[in-house]
Amino acid sequence: MADPSVLNPHPPEFDQFLQASVGADQNGYAVTVLSTLARLGLDPWRETAELVTLGRDAAPARLGALLARFRDVPALASDHGKVARDLSQLLPEDRASGAPQRAASTVVDGRPGTSGAIWAVIAIMFVLFQMFIVGGSGSGE
């Protein structure tokens, strides 16, 4: 069976955090953490990875600072600290397996673990295609 990370290179450990609501915007629509970070011009997965590496103690402060900059959700103006503390509890933490830390380092490094294999397969397919084209264009004798 194919590795699911090929189609979705983002760590699934971040999904619960990124899909959590930060509140309702001025039109009454729920705004997620993912949407908030993207609207701030940040890469949501990279920022989440950095929050994970900061740990449970420092992550709420960093997230609170980000939420304080976000003006699309009126309720955040007075409550961004509490929302940040609540949301930071959704960050993955599994010290035993280290999976969130590995996922975070993959996102921060910008290199998914399977990208080398994908590029190798693409290169092989390209070489085979070239051999087929060049080999098939003989003089016909």
Rank of each mutant, 00 (worst) to 15 (best):
2 A>Q: 11
4 P>T: 03
5 S>E: 14
8 N>C: 11
12 P>N: 02
12 P>I: 00
12 P>E: 04
12 P>K: 00
13 E>Q: 10
15 D>I: 01
16 Q>M: 11
16 Q>F: 00
18 L>H: 04
19 Q>D: 12
20 A>F: 11
20 A>M: 13
22 V>N: 10
23 G>D: 06
25 D>N: 15
25 D>R: 03
26 Q>L: 10
27 N>L: 13
27 N>R: 11
29 Y>M: 09
29 Y>E: 14
31 V>C: 03
36 T>G: 03
36 T>W: 01
36 T>R: 03
37 L>V: 09
37 L>N: 07
39 R>D: 15
40 L>H: 02
40 L>Q: 05
40 L>E: 09
41 G>L: 09
41 G>T: 09
42 L>T: 05
44 P>T: 09
44 P>H: 11
45 W>A: 00
46 R>D: 03
46 R>C: 04
49 A>F: 07
51 L>P: 06
53 T>G: 02
56 R>T: 07
56 R>H: 08
57 D>N: 06
57 D>H: 05
58 A>S: 08
58 A>R: 14
59 A>I: 00
59 A>V: 01
60 P>E: 08
61 A>R: 15
61 A>I: 12
61 A>D: 12
62 R>I: 01
63 L>P: 11
64 G>M: 09
66 L>F: 03
70 F>I: 03
71 R>Q: 11
72 D>H: 10
74 P>S: 02
76 L>W: 10
78 S>G: 05
79 D>I: 04
81 G>M: 09
82 K>P: 01
83 V>F: 11
84 A>P: 13
86 D>K: 12
87 L>S: 05
87 L>E: 06
89 Q>H: 11
91 L>A: 06
94 D>L: 01
95 R>D: 01
95 R>G: 02
95 R>V: 07
96 A>I: 13
100 P>D: 07
101 Q>A: 10
101 Q>R: 06
102 R>L: 12
102 R>D: 08
103 A>T: 00
106 T>D: 10
107 V>K: 14
107 V>W: 12
107 V>A: 15
108 V>K: 15
109 D>L: 08
110 G>M: 02
110 G>D: 10
110 G>W: 02
111 R>A: 08
111 R>K: 12
111 R>M: 06
111 R>E: 09
112 P>I: 07
115 S>N: 03
115 S>Y: 06
116 G>D: 13
117 A>P: 00
118 I>N: 03
118 I>P: 02
118 I>L: 14
122 I>V: 15
123 A>T: 15
124 I>F: 15
129 F>I: 05
130 Q>C: 13
132 F>G: 08
133 I>V: 15
134 V>K: 08
139 S>D: 15
141 E>W: 13
